[in-house]
Design a protein around this nucleic acid. Structure first.
Length: 446
RNA sequence: CGGGGUGUGGCGCAGCCUGGUAGCGCGUCGGUUUUGGGUACCGAAGGUCGUGGGUUCGAAUCCCGCCGCCCCGACCA
């Protein structure tokens, strides 16, 4: 993509309304534009990142055995009356009336809908376990939307649902999702710590929130230092191995890690040595919980067991805030110059800066690089504007491309271009074809 | 919903107290400059001053209503 033909409305000055760094940088980098309070348009750069995150979530969900569907944003109130939540949900639910005066709503979540879909098709223990999920826009009429896409009213969420014959089986599904979440966040380059969450009406410990540590987080969190650099790394993940999944969950939930909702200071002090106690702030990016038969019972979603007994389906619900993750990623990856995208979500693999636009040799070298990068399957944003070098570098830094190729007459005389890392600042000079090979190597398997 | 702010070209702001018909910086456009970290100069375009009403010879400015947006609190991916 050539910048002269792209749509990238970057801002030199910081918009006054943006209070936190991710919001400021998203506006400045031309990723989003506010439509009204808590509602945003996604501009090309932001939309690309959003889709990249979506893609990773899709891949990891399906790897864990979840099956993609797509449910509507607008729902009928009838189902919600059946579950009893139409009245329970409160003003946060956007209620709409259609031309026939029927009560509709813009879905804040989809438990009712998915349960209705599943109950119509499932009749026996042979129909479970199943996990269905979708990535769809939600609307919650927050009292006070703020922080850009971190707390919007309209937001993109992955919500998944598991269906099992009993609690023990549901726990296996739960573990699959927990591990899937660990894999997902790790691929996104985020350290998201699973924390004991309020377990709701069912009890037990099958409820966790995943929090990214960041000073601008909305929740206060208490955790054992051991959680901070825990990583799956090369740990093999086999979603068919229930015992292995349970072991991963055990390991990741052993150290103390709780939000202020569930925090118990005495337990914290008993479990963690003073020097390892961390009190920080966190951004909630995921939430998994087992809700038992909460929806299956009122909605009559039942299956017949192997023994011939009709039982309500045991369900679980698993959310990832996809649009929020864009903000969380920036909160976790930025410096005073701008964003620093992880390779897994960057909108372009590399930025290309031509230091002498209009010079035949430089222009030609850049065009060659474009071709070679495309052949290697690498996306490139080529700043071909007639601009000063400093302005070009600053733009690349602001929008956070992790790698930058710089082409100038000085280097070309020696047959080299510069490859610079946004994260480390390191700059190396090498032949153009070697730079492409190096980038291909970096992005292999990302 | 309670408390505190704010609304003036695309962005950031001044002007408002003390009414006289709108200004600055950035950006944009046309030139010159051909640039190794936001270059300089010349020229230009662009504004129903959120909105409705009132006071006045005259309102961005004073008064009243409404709306939008932001911040602080209780809820949430």
């Amino acid at each position: 993509m050539r910048l002269s033909r792209y749509f990238l409305p970057v801002l030199k000055e910081t918009p006054a309304e943006a209070q936190i760094v991710s919001h400021r940088l998203m506006l400045r980098a031309g990723m989003i534009r506010q439509a009204s309070a808590g509602i945003y348009s996604w501009l090309p750069l932001g939309y690309t990142v959003l889709r990249n995150i979506e893609r990773i979530v899709h891949e990891e969900q399906q790897r864990a055995g979840a099956i993609p569907v797509l449910m509507p944003t607008i729902q009928s109130a009838d189902l919600w009356r059946e579950s009893g939540r139409y009245d329970a949900y409160g003003p946060e639910m956007l209620r709409i009336r259609d031309r026939h005066d029927r009560d509709m709503l813009y879905g804040p979540t989809n438990e009712e809908q998915i349960t209705e879909i599943f109950r119509a098709a499932a009749s026996s223990y042979r129909d479970v376990p199943r996990m269905l999920y979708h990535i769809q826009w939600k609307f919650r009429d927050e009292i006070r939307p703020r922080f850009g896409v971190m707390r919007g009213r309209e937001f993109l969420m992955k919500d998944g649902y598991s269906f099992d014959v009993d609690r023990a089986a549901a726990e296996v599904s739960y573990n699959k999702m927990m591990v899937s979440y660990l894999c997902t966040f790790e691929r996104l380059g985020l350290q998201a710590v699973p924390m004991q969450a309020e377990s709701g009406p069912i009890g037990g410990d099958l409820a966790h929130e995943f929090l990214v540590l960041a000073d601008t987080g909305e929740s206060e969190v208490f955790l054992d230092r051991a959680m901070v650099d825990m990583a799956l790394g090369d740990t093999p993940v086999d979603y068919e191995d229930a015992a292995g999944l349970a072991e991963i969950r055990r390991r990741w939930t052993a150290p103390y890690a709780r939000t202020d909702d569930t925090h118990d200071q005495a337990a914290f002090e008993a479990a963690v040595a003073e020097g390892d106690r961390m009190v920080r702030r966190g951004i909630e990016v995921g939430h998994i919980f087992y809700f038992g038969t909460k929806y299956a019972e009122p909605l009559g979603a039942t299956i017949v067991t192997h023994e011939g007994e009709r039982v309500p389906i045991h369900g679980g619900s698993y959310g990832i805030g996809v649009s929020r993750l864009v903000g969380a990623l920036i909160e976790a990856n930025h410096d005073d110059k701008g964003i620093i995208w992880p390779e897994s979500v960057t909108p372009f693999a590399v930025g290309l800066v031509n230091l002498k636009q209009g010079d035949g040799v430089c222009d030609g070298a850049c065009a060659d690089l474009e071709t070679q990068l495309a052949a290697a399957g690498l996306s490139v944003l080529y700043d071909d504007r007639d601009e000063r070098a400093g302005a070009k570098f600053a733009t690349m830094e602001l929008i956070g491309l992790p790698w930058r190729l710089t082409v100038g007459p000085r280097g070309l005389k020696a047959g080299t271009v510069e490859l610079a890392s946004r994260r480390s600042g390191e700059v190396i000079e090498l032949a153009p074809q070697d730079a492409v090979a190096r980038l291909a190597e970096i992005y292999r398997g990302v």
